[in-house]
């Protein structure tokens, strides 16, 4: 998401966040990121993914985990805890069904978008938002399966397991469909 380490030359990332997303003055993806070696963490990862924008090959790279700084993990935990607490307070005040709305509150995505846009580019944030659409479709399936399974007297563990599987299948399935028929990779940089 972010790494907190920035090379001054990373200033090519837009400040007001407009130029790169629509392709104007987009200098991402031209190899600058990797040539300096000064940006570690996930920002470095995103720099590499910038470089290969338009490449829609799906990869799992476990070593990238070690490049994310403790500050990033702390921020993520804080956002997760904050949203969960908000959902908990709303459920306590207005009842569990209204509180359930906030189990699909997009605060974590919003935080991610702002951090990605700040540390990298708005174009990458747009890519993240497009991908989140597929995850959100999966969220609907997740909630519907839990509601149906618990109405059918399934045990909680089975309902949660089935719902998580449905989320994964729906969201990844939507992604793969989009990849096959539209454009599954990241939005390529202009120029």
């Amino acid at each position: 998401m972010t790494n907190g380490l920035r090379d001054d030359r990373d200033d090519h990332n837009d400040r007001d966040g407009r130029d790169e997303c629509d392709g104007r003055d987009d200098r991402d993806g031209r190899g600058d990121h990797n040539s300096r070696g000064g940006s570690g963490g996930s920002g470095g990862d995103r720099g590499r993914s910038d470089e290969r924008c338009g490449d829609d090959e799906v990869r799992l790279v476990p070593r990238e985990l070690g490049k994310t700084g403790p500050r990033d993990w702390l921020i993520r935990f804080a956002f997760g805890a904050g949203v969960s607490a908000l959902a908990g307070v709303v459920a306590t005040v207005a009842g569990p069904r209204f509180g359930g709305l906030f189990l699909a509150f997009p605060a974590i995505l919003m935080a991610s978008l702002t951090l990605v846009a700040k540390e990298e580019s708005l174009r990458q944030a747009c890519n993240e938002a497009r991908g989140a659409t597929f995850g959100a479709v999966g969220l609907f399936g997740f909630a519907a399966v839990i509601a149906a399974a618990l109405a059918g007297r399934w045990p909680l563990w089975a309902a949660l397991t089935a719902a998580t599987a449905v989320w994964a299948v729906l969201s990844l399935g939507c992604y793969l469909l989009a990849r096959a028929f539209v454009a599954g990779g990241d939005e390529p940089p202009a120029g």
């Binding site: 998401m1 996930s42 990862d45 995103r46 993914s49 290969r52 490449d55 829609d56 090959e57 799906v58 990869r59 799992l60 790279v61 476990p62 990238e64 985990l65 994310t68 997760g80 189990l103 997009p106 974590i108 995505l109 991610s112 990458q124 890519n127 993240e128 938002a129 497009r130 991908g131 989140a132 659409t133 597929f134 995850g135 959100a136 999966g138 969220l139 997740f142 719902a163 998580t164 989320w167 969201s171 990844l172 992604y175 599954g184 990779g185 990241d186 939005e187």
Partner: peptide, 17 residues
Amino acid sequence: EMIAPKRLAGVFSAAPS
């Protein structure tokens, strides 16, 4: 964090965490 491309990683920003 481990997944590329970023559009696929974005799926996890809408995970049921």
